[in-house]
Nucleic acid binder design. Structure first.
Lengths: 209, 209
DNA sequence: AAAACAATCACCCGAAAGAAGTATTTAAAG
DNA sequence: CTTTAAATACTTCTTTCGGGTGATTGTTTT
């Protein structure tokens, strides 16, 4: 076997069983070793500081913060960090945000382990890797206009079951302005009404219930 | 160590990494052994027929069918099968359905592995075990009236962005009847409007987007 | 048999939502 | 400096929604 230093991996996920699976898989490879695990965003940042792993596997939803936020926190301190998102599918917007924020790869937990090992090696070698399943989801909504921050706020309020009048009060704007925002939201998401807009927003990972 | 025959376990989950984690955990215990894995409902049924495991760990969402349906298929053939749901949280209705359909336990993937081992041993010994986190979720909606099948159909149609008139056409009923159904749905779910009803329905696992 | 529930339909009515157009202000980008 | 985009606000008009009341039919449970 090779005498090269092994690829040092950090796994961040709030499911202990999944971390165990990743650890077993990694440690069975001769050229990789698991150096630390983390179950939350905070632990992830601390673990990275302590171990400086070559590759970090990061879940999207963590108990304390989003995996993207945790990744950004790490990249802020260590811009050369190589982070791969490893998650169940969450909608094209999450993928887009993760990649825009500096993720080097995006894997689904349903993919075969060989794919994971492959991506780890590729990313360690300095490449980016987005599997075709993920890429096609991304391509699906390529031309689509993104919602503005304000529109997302309004959509969240709609998802919470608020009437336009209530939304207006909460956001300190007129009810007419709320209507305009919702009109734009429905156009951008190709939704037939506010309920459809919420459903699409959830499916695409723009908002969460 | 003991000479007792080991508890034979089948793991059903479409995430290979999680199966690997479960397998590692189980096989590290002296009194347990993993006899088979399955990535779909069909594989689960076939795997059960072939190996007759003492305890089956079943995920809720599988590629081909719901984990509950897979469980019911197994219980139909082998009524004495001991099946534990192992899943991310999906809402109280799924828990209720799983237990009503004959699950002997209900675990969350975020729970510590020791909890999993404990539940496997308890269930193997013929007991049922619902951890307090799950039980409290269940208790949250104890008195609540359940939606009827028709109401769920209507709620699904609402979630798809249909107007009352469209729902009426699709279900071959009058728009007035649709209104009555939606009124009942909103009452039962304590929703402020149809959008809220969809949001609550998704959170509680009554419908899926 | 009686009571309870589920599903169906009807009519009325006010409140809310959505469509379309116009317009002002501010901030960012060219 | 001009153009563009975002957020704001208003008016008008039409459609849809949701509340209330009441009624019929069939099924299930007691």
């Amino acid at each position: 076997m090779s005498k090269l230093p092994a690829i040092r991996v950090l796994s961040v996920d709030d499911h202990p069983l999944l971390r165990e699976g990743v650890a077993t898989l990694i440690n069975n490879e001769l050229d990789m070793t698991m150096v630390a695990e983390a179950a939350s965003g905070l632990e992830a940042v601390q673990g990275f500081r302590e171990h400086k792993p070559d590759v970090t596997l990061m879940d999207l939803r963590l108990p304390d913060m989003s995996g993207i936020d945790a990744m950004m926190a790490i990249l802020c301190e260590f811009p050369e960090a190589r982070i791969v998102m490893l998650t169940t599918f969450e909608g094209d917007v999450e993928i887009q945000r993760a990649l825009a924020a500096g993720a080097r790869g995006y894997l689904l937990k349903s993919m075969p382990p060989s794919e994971l090992l492959d991506v780890i090696r590729q990313v360690h070698a300095g490449k980016k890797r987005i599997p075709p399943e993920v890429a096609s989801q991304l391509a699906e909504h390529m031309g689509d206009e993104l919602l503005t921050q304000r529109e997302i706020e309004v959509l969240r309020a709609v998802a919470d079951g608020n009437r336009n009048r209530d939304i207006a009060e909460k956001l300190f704007i007129s009810e007419e302005t709320v209507k305009v925002h919702i009109k734009h939201i429905m156009e951008k998401l190709h939704a037939s009404d506010r309920t459809d807009a919420v459903a699409i927003g959830v499916r695409r990972g723009i908002i969460h219930l």
